[in-house]
Design a binder for these strands. Sequence first.
DNA 1: TCTACATTTGACCGCTTGGTTAAAACACAT
DNA 2: ATGTGTTTTAACCAAGCGGTCAAATGTAGA
Lengths: 201, 201
Amino acid sequence: MTIAGEHTENQILTSARDVFIAKGYEGARMQEIADRAGINKALLHYYFRSKENLFDAVFSEVASHLFPAMKQLLESDLGLKEKITFFVKIYLKALNENPYIPAFVINTLNTNPDGFLKYIKKAGVNPLLLQKQIEDEAGRGLIRAVKAEHLLVNIIAMCIFPFVARPIVQNIFEMNDEEYRFYLESRETEIIDFVLKSIRL
Amino acid sequence: MTIAGEHTENQILTSARDVFIAKGYEGARMQEIADRAGINKALLHYYFRSKENLFDAVFSEVASHLFPAMKQLLESDLGLKEKITFFVKIYLKALNENPYIPAFVINTLNTNPDGFLKYIKKAGVNPLLLQKQIEDEAGRGLIRAVKAEHLLVNIIAMCIFPFVARPIVQNIFEMNDEEYRFYLESRETEIIDFVLKSIRL
DNA sequence: TCTACATTTGACCGCTTGGTTAAAACACAT
DNA sequence: ATGTGTTTTAACCAAGCGGTCAAATGTAGA
């Protein structure tokens, strides 16, 4: 692969990601991806043999950024409260930089449930360590006992939801875009506070 | 409209809802909707002039079931803790009966953001009442002070997330379908407990 | 400059899609 | 039975889709 070739390939991947995220798999058009990449449509098939291949390439790139940070943090040796604090901060920062990814993932997840297991499995997120830490700190009277599979889901849910359901939330609370940006910012301390308050003794 | 006609129309709406939810707007095929309804494809256009019209009909029906229950509960005169308890129970029950609706709504919300505001506005969910009640009960020392726009979002997020991200959650925690059903059931008391613990003084 | 290979293009293809049409089948009041 | 309006159908259409192909262009070493 030449340097020019790599540049073209990256251009395609970037354009494809944008279009797939905005329109979903079925709604995305190979022509539009080609146009945005500034190339001929036939060239898409030269680099990625089919639409499905192209989508797989895009998705695996997105997925590869999704889990490792989570895994790394879960396996660090911080105290639980610090771990939760950092996790929420890192996670919300990542979401702010890619606000459309969760909806994209959810959409793909539900219209095409197959083909995901490999990415999830490969990520190797292991909640057992978290459970152990919870039990340990609960035993030492630092927090109350909670189940890891609920705590983790609760935290992630609270982080992601305002991004995937933005139009609903924004409208019910009658915020403009500026106010919503502010609202998203304020959720960082709010979620951390909410969780820590809940798991205190 | 004759009785037979109404029957056909309902048949179409039911089939259309199933297909739209399973495949999304772009992925849904008029032919498949017709087949499932046991009728000719041309008859779809006789009752609903276009695919877009049919989708609107389906979505407005779904949306009309989404908010009224929420609104009614928020405006009832229960104490906050009872209100939260009932809300989670009712909401999870509705989700269990229609587990694919949230993903469908999120998908539509993000690929076609327009046309939603009317349903949301019409629903008239008013969080001001909730905020007032929170301030009141906080003033009386029953709970700590929280912001309604965070509390409400937190609760709904925790309820919905395991339904829209089921494949991920199920896989990370290595559950089979039976175990996941059980997990979803256990979340009811877990969420209620998590929230009430968080807002205690 | 010639050669061999990778990259890029415009034109094209078969198929599926949402949508139309004219006629048939039905329902029902007279 | 007949006429009238509604409901249903098979056949069809133009447009748009993902994908292909042969030819053109670029790029490097010999």
